[in-house]
Structures are given as C-alpha cells and as structure tokens.
C-alpha cells in the first residue's frame, strides 16, 4: 500500500483546501460555521490517524498492569477478577483499528474496576497511580482536541 503522504498529511491538506478554496467562496453564515467545525474535525482526525493505535496500546498496557497490581495488592475483588478474565479471553493482538479499540475498551473496564476498588479501600498510592494513568489518557485526548471552543456561539 501507499503510505506516503501519510493519512495525517492528507487530512491536513484537505483542511487547508477547505480553508483556502471552499471557505472563501462561501457567504452563508451557517455554512461558514460548518466549515470551521469541519476544519477542527479534520485536525482531530489527522492527530488520531497519526497516533491512536500507539496511544491505545500504551494506555491499555498501563491500565491492565494497574489492574493486575491492584489484584495482587488488594486481592479478592470480584469485579476486578471478572474484568481481567474478560480481558484475557477477549484481547486481540491484531493491529486493525477495530480490534485495537475493542481490546482497549476491555482494558478500560479492568482499570475502572481496579480503580474503584483501590479508592474504596483508601489505598492512596494506588489511587495516585491510577490518576497518573488518567492523566496520560487526558494528555492524548488534549493533543487530539488541540485548540477548541464552541464556534458560532454568540
């Protein structure tokens, strides 16, 4: 397959075309706002296309490692055990996007159950560790979001 230009580059080029060619030819205020929104979504998609598989893998590994640590430190929680069981039986090593996304979601359920258990047990170190994983996810989401505000709200 052709990989260069990358999907990120193609989407950013589409965005430039939208702004330089299409936007200037449009006068309707509702359509101009829709163009601003499309510009933003194209930037979001470009950033996702460039990184999302790597980021889902990175976060997923951290989330499952956390759940296993909670399971070892505070054993016997049925929700954590059940989520880890579902992850182990449902995970996929495939790099196709749908498969990575499904595995990431299973990892998220493990993490949520483990986090709830750690917080309920007042385990401060695990609580803070979980927050650092949430911070990692948020950092990725913010890179996808970029500059953003509600356009056209006035």
């Amino acid at each position: 397959m052709l990989t260069r230009p990358t999907t990120e580059q193609i989407l950013l080029d589409l965005r430039d075309e939208l702004l330089t060619t299409v936007d200037g030819a449009v006068e309707s205020p509702p359509v101009k706002i829709a163009i601003q929104m499309m510009e933003n979504v194209l930037r979001n998609c470009a950033e996702r296309a460039a990184h999302e598989i790597a980021w889902m893998r990175e976060e997923g590994d951290a989330m499952v490692a956390f759940a296993r640590e909670v399971d070892q430190t505070l054993p016997g929680n049925s929700a954590v055990d059940s989520a880890l069981g579902a992850f182990n039986s449902g995970r996929s090593e495939s790099l196709h996007l749908d498969d990575v996304s499904a595995t990431y979601s299973l990892a998220g359920h493990c993490f949520s159950a483990a986090l709830e258990h750690a917080v309920a047990q007042n385990h401060v170190a695990l609580h803070l560790k979980a927050r650092s994983i949430l911070d990692l996810r948020l950092e990725h989401e913010n890179r996808i979001k970029g500059e953003w505000a509600f356009v056209g709200r006035a």
Binding site: M38, N40, N44, N122, H127, D135, L138, E141
Partner: peptide, 21 residues
Amino acid sequence: TYTLNALTVGHSNFMAGCIPP
C-alpha cells in the same frame, strides 16, 4: 463529531474537580 471535543473538556474538568488524596 465536532462536539466530541467537549467530552475531553469534561474529562479535564472532572480531574480538576476531583481533588486527589
């Protein structure tokens, strides 16, 4: 699709509002 970013804004605020121990 455009308002998906509002979810990230929500996540930022959740984290800011939930003060860690």
